[in-house]
Design a protein around this nucleic acid. Sequence first.
RNA 1: GCGUCGGUGGUAGAGUGGUCAAUUACAACAGACUGUAAAUCUGUCGCCUCCGGGCUACGAAGGUUCGAAUCCUUCCCGACGCA
Length: 443
Amino acid sequence: MQFKIEKRISAKGGSASGGKKYLGRVGVLQTSHGDILTPAFVAVGTKATVKSLNPEQVKDAGTQVVLGNTYHLYLQPGDEIVRDAGGIGKFMNWKGPTMTDSGGFQVFSLGAAFGKDISKLIHLSKITDPSLLIPERFDDSDAPRLAKIGQDGVSFKSHLDGSIHYITPEKSIQIQHNLGADIIFAFDECTSPSEDLKYQEEALERTHRWAQRSLEEHQKLLNQKQTRSQDLLLRNVDRSPEYVSDFSPVLFGIVQGGREESLRKKSAKIISEINVDGKYFDGFGIGGSFAKEDMSTAVKWVNEILPEEKPRHLLGIGEPEDLFMGVENGVDLFDCVAPTRLGRNGTIYTKNGKIIIMNTKYRNDFSPIEKDCECYSCQNYSRAYIAHLFHGKEMLAGTLASIHNLYFIVNLVKKIRQSILNDNFFEFKEEFLKGYLRMDNFS
RNA sequence: GCGUCGGUGGUAGAGUGGUCAAUUACAACAGACUGUAAAUCUGUCGCCUCCGGGCUACGAAGGUUCGAAUCCUUCCCGACGCA
């Protein structure tokens, strides 16, 4: 993998304004399955499918990369099946670059966040009310959890059949090597912003230890692969060109640290310095479950410290205003379930804000979602038709809405990229957000 | 014509003397969703309200009762059976 930075954000009118340094940049990330022009939005395909879309639709939306999930694919169909299929890309018929998340987020979503209204927790995360703090992590008297964290790894109770699985950093990396994506992530612990500082510190140390172990396992597997392939070469054995082991994934470390400046900075430093015999992480993920107002500072703290020549992925983030914030603060890659989840649930992005397509006023609105949108849905269908499909619970509803939403977000990031190349990032941001954040009054 | 069973809020369908403005489901209306246990979830859903409550309601009209969607009488309507 190679990452080339082509241009950085400059202030209006080039470098005239006092040489202020911006973190944002435009780059190209080369993978075994093609180049990714960054900043880029990665489509989430948790179970080796971008929900409700086929790969052609994903591609036509402008998507460059798809992100699968280690935990989900390990449980179903099993990572060995995916490996034997030729890797996640081949398995799901996605020919472009792929990534897999490590399962670290499931430590959070099936653990601390399980059964809780996390959005509420997050929004209340000023941490003034002690009752909002998650009290004892390890007691099971409380609400049932599907994940429990130990020093060595995390035990999960499968949400599919109740079976118990223990995932360690080594295991996560092994699974990800089997899944065969181009970019994989270290196994981390994503904490809730409502955890207290003491817990955040513990979790962070754990994430750092796990990062080291992830990298060690990754290097070990790469070495084994290399030895094996040299061996095959010596013995003159034909290798299937499609066999997954022809591709070597690159590993991104994950920075955590919650909302604490000191922890975030510490994490960025430690993660960027972790190495195994001089081999470092190839890039970085910025993880966490953020309160909206904490996000930009956290990203900035981290990206000021991470080595700038390596790519950074802001995990799980993807509302339009967040994308501008991320790019401005030096993020190269984003992924988010929002376009597809919102789409399936009937919320659709427009330049003038999100609309809920089932609302009465759209039932006889025969205009497209957006008049000047080039996506398949807008080129061929009306709001009234899509509203009708949702009311009728037709499968195509979620598909058409997801196509538009994915196109909208992927192309927004492309436009942001172009604005940096055109030296008008800040103008574009202001113009876009002026329309988008005015959440009413559209036709 | 006789008999039997039934008529409940937008729909289906519970309830069969008080705890019923009436279970539930669907529809409708509004909202939420940020590394996907999500084609999911939440709220509202007779009218009015100073959110304490007030008013009108279970085919219609009478009646019994302290009290009726629930019991009685008559009428109207529907299904089925017998003529």
